[in-house]
Write a protein that binds this DNA or RNA. Sequence first.
RNA 1: GCUCCCAUCGUCUAGCGGUCCAGGACGUCGCCCUCUCACGGCGAAAACAGGGGUUCAAUUCCCCUUGGGAGUACCA
Length: 470
Amino acid sequence: MTIRTRFAPSPTGFLHIGGARTALYCYLEARRRGGEFILRIEDTDQERSTQVSIDAILDAMEWLGLDYDEGPFYQSQRIHRYRHAAEELVQSGHAYRCWCSKERLDSMREAQMAAGEKPRYDGRCREHPEAIAGVTPVIRFRNPQAGVVVFNDKVRGRIEIANAEMDDLILWRSDDFPTYNFAVVIDDIDMRITDVIRGEDHINNTPRQINIYHALGATPPSFAHLPMIHGADGAKLSKRHGAVNVMQYRDDGYLPHALLNYIARLGWSHGDQEIFSREELRTLFKVDDVNRAPSRFDFDKLAWLNQHYLKTDPPESVAAHLLWQLRELDFDLARGPAPVDVVVALRDRVKTLKEMAERARIWYLDLEGFEPAAAARHLVAAAVPGLQSARGQLAAIAPAQWSSTTVDVALHAAAESLGLALGKVAQPLRVAMTGTQVSPSIEHTVFLVGQTRALERIDQALAHISAVPA
RNA sequence: GCUCCCAUCGUCUAGCGGUCCAGGACGUCGCCCUCUCACGGCGAAAACAGGGGUUCAAUUCCCCUUGGGAGUACCA
């Protein structure tokens, strides 16, 4: 039998981190076992589902590279199928119509809570069905009243819940739509899902669903319930913890595979290994190895992983992602260095692509003057010989030979000719090139400014020095 | 309230009865390298929630307490 997993988000918002991890685990489990991964949009809530959300989820899946073999399927297009199935259950006696009003249900629930009981449907229409004119009935599942439902959760082990704890849930609403617990079961049966992997918030639904499987004469799939992901403070992940929306991570400058690696490792491990390529994940990930405890999202570790990939990925591939950020900042790419050279100069110094793009400003835009503190310290009379010597050496490089290597040679020659340590020349030059005291190594900084502009900026620095009263 | 789930360094985790005065990683703190900032290298501090059992032996098994979380909808 072919293994089939599915990711089934409801389109009531963007794809968040927890959902992304669920999708990833479903995808990986299917891949490892040579199975199929299906995407299904659970849009039976007419009130809250939106097309914007559907698009957002699809975009995020694509950005993460979680490709699905089938779908997306939409529950809203399968309504007739659910209606048919509900009717069958009524015929077979596994379900019944219920005319109880919401008002009666609400007040009953309130009374039960007040009495310290578990709120539940009292079964009036189960025992004494009585049609009420003008009221559209719902269809309720006739849940077994005795015995226990036991299932073996792939991550939690044996879970047991007594049928006495469950009441008769609604399968079919009066607005002529199915409820979640009913639609999932029908879909998972129809789509031949063998492994249901979902968030732990569904544990309590599972025994009810298993009962529905049995009523339908179907065999339940295997289940795996994943722990939740919390914010750094242990509370539910929310905006104030940083990004919840997966696409926010692209905007913030993270590589998709860095996020994937981080998220895979959050709640799952393979010995002491921290770095996993997508291919490794596809062969190593086992949902059975997922941890049971909830975990907290650690932005520092994500940042570390992101930088790891910035440093070790081929510069060309990083450059492709950097390009997106550069365009966001509206830089004129024709007026600056090739993005791949920017990657090489900055990848050891930044955690994100966004930071990289912002720091590349000095190579794409004109300087906005020298920082007062930097100028006061380095653009002084004593720096003039070094700057002039550097200017001479840099000017002597044939334009076609201009590279970080030839710049490096030129600057060492400039320092040596004056008997100075490289630092004595490099720091004033750095201020001349960037207006600040911090930048990548001096040869890259100068190289990326470009020969013509580099000479201009040295001249500006020299002019600045002579303009300041000694 | 009731039901279910969870519990190793600040964080992510290894551990599946003796190999653990508990290992790795991020972060933190030192030192080294160095043209700034970083990268890198080396090193340090840092945890089995508490209490009962079971056992010759518990971080590992069971129970309770405490503390988290989820569910309890004509939401998913």
